[in-house]
Design a protein around this nucleic acid. Structure first.
Length: 219
DNA sequence: ATCTAGATCGGCT
DNA sequence: GCCGATCTAGATG
């Protein structure tokens, strides 16, 4: 599937062209890692917002105890659905988080988008978030849904088309991918399924201390 | 019917 | 770093 890699390089963030569904119809860990550098876009009546993915986590199916798809329930059902679908859920009584569904339809998997580097509509993001610092706009899964105007109403949305979609982007020259355990979970807490742009000031926080080694991966 | 943990954030120390 | 807010999904009785 290296065609995806080369295609992503021909459009480093300019035209916001939607990513094809086939990109998401692959193993979740691959999609999570390769999602870095691509761009989440939302066009609303208030204006356009967009951000580069700088942090993402893989959540698998019935063999991943930390995943909502560990059990098949009404909420997690969409994780078995069509790749490229949005899985938006509400947590901690306060926050929405957005995932993109992966794997072939019928196989559970999703990638949680944990942080974005804002690239368009920063003033709209500021007014939605009530803060000014670009690093504070989308540096966390609950923050970025507010900044991007995403709510539970977007659960089940097809992220391969307007007005809410993922667009081709790319890692910049010299950027490398860091790997660590996922954040904020109890079960499978050591599995290194979080991917992030090393050194980016736009990632959320560090994972809690863990036996699993941090690692780095060079594309 | 009731309980509990949670893919979080912001404020405070 | 610690803690409270706020509430839902899912589990258990």
């Amino acid at each position: 599937m290296s065609t995806f890699g080369s295609e992503s390089l021909e459009d480093p963030g300019g035209s916001l062209r939607p990513i094809e569904r086939a990109f998401f119809d692959r193993p979740t860990l691959i999609v999570a890692r390769e999602l870095l550098g691509h761009v989440l876009v939302h066009r609303t009546p208030e204006g356009l917002t967009a951000g580069r993915v700088v942090e993402a986590e893989a959540y698998l199916g019935p063999n991943d105890p930390a995943s909502h798809a560990y059990r098949r329930t009404a909420r997690s059902r969409v994780m078995w659905g069509r790749p490229g679908t949005a899985y938006v859920y509400f947590t901690y009584g306060n926050h929405f988080c957005i995932n993109v569904v992966t794997e072939t339809e019928g196989v559970a998997g999703a990638v949680l988008i944990r942080a974005l580097e804002p690239v368009a509509g920063l003033d709209l993001m500021r007014s939605r978030r009530g803060v000014g610092d670009p690093r504070e706009l989308c540096s966390g899964p609950g923050k970025l849904t507010v900044a991007m105007g995403i709510t539970g109403a977007h659960n089940g949305w097809d992220l391969t088309r307007e007005p809410l979609y993922l667009a081709w982007g790319a890692l910049r020259e010299g950027e490398t991918v860091g790997i660590s355990p996922r954040i904020g979970i109890r079960r499978a807490a050591d599995w290194p399924w979080r991917f992030f742009v090393e050194g980016s000031p736009f990632v959320s926080r560090s994972p809690r201390k863990s036996r699993a080694p941090r690692a780095s991966w060079r594309p």
